[in-house]
């Protein structure tokens, strides 16, 4: 019995589950952050509401759009590689990277504004959460872009085809996660009052 079934185990751990386990871990960390944020907000509602108004919602909304669009581009890239259209796939990935770059630029403008106003992690509890949450996410965007870029390079070398596109899918999943986190983060920190 044991010989026949010894092949099963890799499917569970460290099978394909593991990359999802990793994404799950990331979501767990963000999840804990969000819960802690919500609790601290309840404790200091007035302060959170007051400082929330200092955030730039227009830039935030624009960034949301950018990330959602680039997530769509990534979906198109996966679609393209499934049809064995490598050059199309690369183009869509570039488009997604452009979306990510746009996000980084807008976010940097926002940070520049805040930092030059002397706002730092230790300014107050609200800014602590605002900065650490968005900065942590910011770094994830960079990481996601690096992953996408690595996939572009591999795709250019012809590493992917309609037979072998799991790498593209993995990168896409990660990018979707980055997007998803922002979609929760944006209303939570910028909008909900």
């Amino acid at each position: 019995m044991s010989k026949a079934h010894s092949e099963i185990e890799p499917e569970l751990l460290p099978g394909d589950l593991a990359i999802w386990l990793f994404i799950f871990m990331e979501l767990l960390v963000f999840g804990i952050f969000f819960i802690v944020y919500a609790i601290m907000r309840l404790k200091n509602i007035e302060m959170f509401n007051q400082y929330q108004l200092t955030l730039n919602r227009e830039l935030g909304a624009a960034n949301t759009l950018l990330l959602i669009t680039s997530s769509y581009f990534v979906v198109r890239a996966v679609h393209a590689i499934r049809l064995n259209n490598v050059s199309n796939c690369i183009h869509w990935l570039y488009a997604a990277l452009a979306g990510g770059t746009g996000f980084l630029i807008l976010k940097s403008l926002e940070y520049y504004d805040k930092f030059s106003a002397g706002i730092r992690l230790s300014t107050n509890t609200f800014y602590m959460f605002y900065l650490s949450l968005t900065l942590f996410h910011f770094l994830h965007v960079i990481l996601g872009m690096l992953i996408l870029f690595a996939i572009v390079i591999k795709a250019c070398r012809g590493a992917y085809s309609d037979q072998n596109y799991t790498g593209v899918e993995t990168g896409a999943s990660y990018w979707h996660m980055v997007d998803l986190v922002w979609i929760i983060l944006f209303p939570l920190v910028y909008i909900i009052r």
């Binding site: 871990m25 960390v29 952050f33 802690v36 992690l121 230790s122 602590m128 650490s132």
Partner: peptide, 25 residues
């Protein structure tokens, strides 16, 4: 050190048992 370490330190060190658990597994 600044107060934010209480949050960051708690959250990330709550994850620190994971590698040791995985070592057992």
């Amino acid at each position: 050190t600044p107060d934010y370490w209480q949050w960051l330190g708690s959250i990330f060190s709550a994850l620190e048992p994971i590698p040791f658990f995985m070592m057992t597994l």
